[in-house]
Amino acid sequence: MTVTQSILTILAVVAATMLTRFLPFLVFPEGKNPPAVITYLGTVLPYAVIGLLVVYCLKDAVFTAWHGLPELIAIVFIVILHKWRKNTLLSIAGGTILYMVLVQNFFA
């Protein structure tokens, strides 16, 4: 990719990101209330989207030779660590380091 193409790609991402942030405020300007169904989606979707993003992160791992085994081990580790210490950064750092050790040494 050339530098111009890189800049265009980043601009496309910026434009789409800003669209998702500004659209609700453009559609429902101050003083106008959104319909009940939109408000309802606003309460349940944040939960579902995080689930979607977890699956998105694992999308390629499932179809590799190990079928996501190192990812699964690291995620189980994160769950146990997080239930135990309730420390967000420790869980993220611990899981990432374990995963790096796994893929660099045992699942290479």
Partner: peptide
């Protein structure tokens, strides 16, 4: 950025990945 140049795909993917902002926005109106 390390894949083939396709800004439309980038735009659509960003819309999807960031669609949750729509609902943040609705919550913050």
């Amino acid at each position: 950025l390390v894949s083939a140049f396709n800004p439309i795909h980038a735009f659509l993917l960003a819309l999807m990945v960031n669609a949750r902002h729509l609902f943040y926005g609705i919550s913050m109106l």
